[in-house]
Amino acid sequence: MQLAGRGVVCVRGGREVFSGLDFEATSGEAVAVVGRNGSGKTSLLRLIAGLLIPAGGTIALDGGDAELTLPEQCHYLGHRDALKPALSVAENLSFWADFLGGERLDAAESLATVGLDHAADLPAAFLSAGQRRRLSLARLLTVRRPVWLLDEPTNALDVAGQDMVGGLMREHLARGGLIIAATHAPLGIDSRQLRIGGAV
C-alpha cells in the first residue's frame, strides 16, 4: 500500500500556500510533516482527507481497498475533537463507531487503552482537554482505517499521554498501517521527515 502525492498545489483564500509538493508513504511507515506556522501542514492533511480540493496535482492511494475512496480509508484527527459535551464518553465513541462503520473493535477495550474506561458513563463535558484528546484517539482504535492523518497528535497531552500515542502509532505501523502526522514536537517514533514551506 502506498500513498503518493505528485505536484500538489494548495491555494487557500487566494494565497498559494505551497506548490509542486511531492511526497510518498508506504505501509508501515510514518511521515512527519514539519514546517513553520502557516506553511500548510494542516492544509496538506486536509487535502489528503478530501476536506480541501487541490488546485493542482494528484494524491492517490495504491493497494488499498479498490471500492473505497482515499478519504473513506483515512482517520483524521484534527484540532477539534468532534465530541458532543451532552453525550457520555461511551455514547460519543459508539456513535462514531456506528457512523463510520467498517471493521471495528470493542469500544470498552479502546477506552481502557487510552485510560478513560472509568469515565465511560460521564458526560464528555466533564473531560479536560487532554482527556478529550484521549477520547478522540479511542475513535482511531475502535474503527480500523489504514491511513491515519494526525494533526499535532500529542497536543494537550502530558508525557504519559505522549508515550501512549507513540505506542499506538507503533502498533498501527506494525499492523501495516500508514501515518501522516503534522507536528512541531518530535513524533516519538521512527519517521521520515517531510519539510514544507522552506526553512524553519
Binding site: A49, L51, E72, Y76, D81, L100, G101, G102
Partner: peptide, 14 residues
C-alpha cells in the same frame, strides 16, 4: 462544523 464532526461526516462512507 464548530466541533469538527462535520469533517468526519464528510469523509465517511455515508
Amino acid at each position: 462544523h464548530d466541533d469538527g464532526s462535520l469533517d468526519l461526516i464528510t469523509m465517511s462512507r455515508t
